[in-house]
Amino acid sequence: MAPTTPQEPGLSAVPSYEEEQSQARFDALIDQDSRVEPRDWMPEKYRKTLSRQISQHAHSEIIGMQPEANWITRAPSLKRKSILMAKVQDEAGHGLYLYSAAETLGTTRDEYNEQLLSGKAKYSSIFNYPARTWADMGAIGWLVDGAAIANQVPLCRASYGPYGRAMVRVCKEESFHQRQGFEILLSLSRGTEAQKKMAQDAINRFYEPALMMFGPPDEQSPNSQQSMAWKIKRFSNDELRQRFVGMIAEQVKVLGLTLPDPELHFDEEKKQWIHKDLNWDEFMAVIKGNGPVNAQRMERRREAHREGAWVREAAAAYAAKQAQSEVA
């Protein structure tokens, strides 16, 4: 029976011969550990998943500029100020690499930007915690960037070419972020009692949120499996969290400080790190917008966009004028 209304391609319940062929080509690329490129056919869900993941990642970089930008004027020396500026500039850059990769999936920059400004899109919940002291710059670099690196290194091999390439660039630049953070904490830990206390306090506040950056436990993360089947994700949330907590458990000894987790130990039998139960209710609350500084971060982003409007308008007007005089 012929349908009464014309059907859009792809909406029919029965895939056409062409769709089956395309799907088979796509599956073969994934099987061979090859890469999918922008103009290749891809399943709609693969496109949507990537578009959401890459843009969320980009938004996180852009919002992630704020906690550290707030400290540039208060950095304790000119050297620290320069380092912090370079780091914030890198984060802007990472956001732009990622937006470019996300745009290859067919959504425009303006749409992504609008999703962020309207509050429709999510970004990493870690940036909804305030950076209260100078030591927080250290803890953010060491723990937050450290967790980000652990997450991002496997993404360099993501099955979508533009995403992987953007991540290679990001990872190359990110390692300085973690080291500079660690060195801030190291300086403080070798300083006065008050400085040491400040460093310990920062670690205490960022430890749990940093571990939660890897996302919910595997059994509560239904989308992960599909992402792993598509080779976007290479390791599960818990695997990555394990790897990370094992690294920082050693690194914290160099600082002469402690992680706020008396239960943390390596289980020789299970061959895995056991850490305390994380507060997933808090995680969900922060994601839903009820973190300590969600509203402040969003307002600052909108304000920055508004305040930059005249620059964008002037640049566009100048470009239009130049184009006209070329024609004339």
Partner: peptide
């Protein structure tokens, strides 16, 4: 190296410098 948005060629070159050659 990648791509970027810019209103004209001159801005594109400057933005490319800031975005792709920071090191």
């Amino acid at each position: 190296a990648g791509s970027l948005h810019a209103p004209d060629a001159q801005m594109a070159v400057r933005n490319a410098r800031d975005l792709y050659t920071r090191r």
